[in-house]
């Protein structure tokens, strides 16, 4: 089990642009999107980290940009780490995590269709929940307008 300070100092050493967030329940760090694949590999494989369980993968639409959020834990050490990566709203691309955590195959497909984030090197990036023909419109984004809005009708 690693403590907060140790985690932060390790990651800021690996990823120069990483910033720790204050006042969070679990250690949370924001990283530049480009450094994600390398960091992810280290987090999963280094002996004192062993973050083998990606228990939540999601995205937040902040209108100006998108934020990918990865909740990681280790089934051996039981420490929890949250990694965030900001992506530009108009061209959101990040490297997939599905080669390290297979649960990301489904979760990234969901984020892809709901938020329009493209995951490079994803083995099977296509719609999962939405029906065919929905490509390009992302219902979970804040600017999405449903043409059939039952509340405003």
């Amino acid at each position: 089990m690693m403590d907060r300070e140790h985690m932060i100092s390790c990651i800021t050493e690996w990823v120069p642009g990483a910033k720790a967030e204050e006042g969070t329940e679990w250690t949370t760090l924001s990283i530049p999107g480009e450094s994600w694949p390398e960091l992810a590999q280290r987090l999963r494989d280094e002996a004192d980290w062993q973050m083998d369980f990606l228990f939540c993968l999601t995205c937040i639409d902040w209108k100006t940009h998108l934020t990918m959020v990865y909740h990681l834990t280790s089934t051996r050490h039981r420490h929890i780490l949250v990694i965030k990566a900001d992506l530009p709203a108009d061209d959101a691309v990040i490297h997939t995590a599905s080669h390290l955590w297979k649960t990301a195959i489904f979760h990234e497909r969901e984020v892809f269709e709901m938020f329009g984030v493209r995951f490079s090197k994803h083995p099977d990036l296509r719609l999962l929940i939405l029906p065919d023909g929905w490509e390009g419109r992302n219902p979970m984004k804040k600017d999405f307008e449903d043409p059939v809005n039952m509340i405003r009708m």
Binding site: D52, F53, L54, T75, K102, T103
Partner: peptide, 9 residues
Amino acid sequence: EDAISYGCT
């Protein structure tokens, strides 16, 4: 290993 990797709980 697969159960953990696939996020099974």
